[in-house]
Amino acid sequence: MSLTMIKKPETSNRTIPNTSKNIVFDTDDLNLWYGDTHALKNINLSINEKEVTAIIGPSGCGKSTFIKTLNRMVEMVPSVRTSGDIKYNEKSILEKSFRVEELRTRVGMVFQKPNPFPKSIYENVAYGPKIHGIRNKKVLDEIVEKSLRDAFIWDEVKDRLKENAYGLSGGQQQRLCIARTLAIEPDVLLMDEPTSALDPISTLKVEELVQKLKEDYSIVIVTHNMQQAARISDQTAFFLNGEVVEFDETEKLFSNPSDQRTEDYITGRFG
């Protein structure tokens, strides 16, 4: 059990990669229960600005739960209790006084299954800006075009903006959902297995997109695909049974893991 608990970055017990980087999210002894199920145990992670942080681990280890606490979506489940602290840009977000709507406009989320609204492509992307009070048609047009371009789907949909989003392929729908999230101009993108429902080519497109987006956004991505984590992330956290077993630079974690269980997992000996 010696290496189970990762020390907080301040207690420089491990190499902090890129110390010059700003930290957007910092969790401090975060615990979470669904009723009696202890789903997250003493999580201490810091997520760097404008980097890709990958979360890997076997099914049911708490990956989704973890990223859903970062935008407090996990509160939709009534039985959830948390303890500990999450700081987003130095502010505690778990306090009831912190407005979740505000948090979720700063911290956007892309879900595992593409989930466009049953509306036109245009309306899907314009949804976020509209609920945040933007009415001006010209401004909306610009946001929609920019978001679709940033999500590398503009060329495929520019002639059919008025068509229902359900007519797009799965991969296009997922990029549309990414565009929809970009339209609210967040700082952080949370992605929960965004490519698990996609074919290899669409997956590649989304991965390229993630690489591009990290110039402007901090990205946390959950993935089951180890190669994917190794390809696209700067840091990787390995979760097991609700605990962080190892958290390090991706290169280090995949080439020279310090915990036996990490090694077993990445070499495919379990999970």
Binding site: L103, F111, N115, Y127, G128
Partner: peptide, 22 residues
């Protein structure tokens, strides 16, 4: 479907906005 309202809340929509628009 739940995933529609989740998408809406995930973008910072309030409950009422989600009900009315989605």
């Amino acid at each position: 479907p739940q995933h529609l309202s989740e998408a809406s809340y995930g973008m910072g929509a309030t409950k009422w906005q989600t009900i009315r628009r989605i």
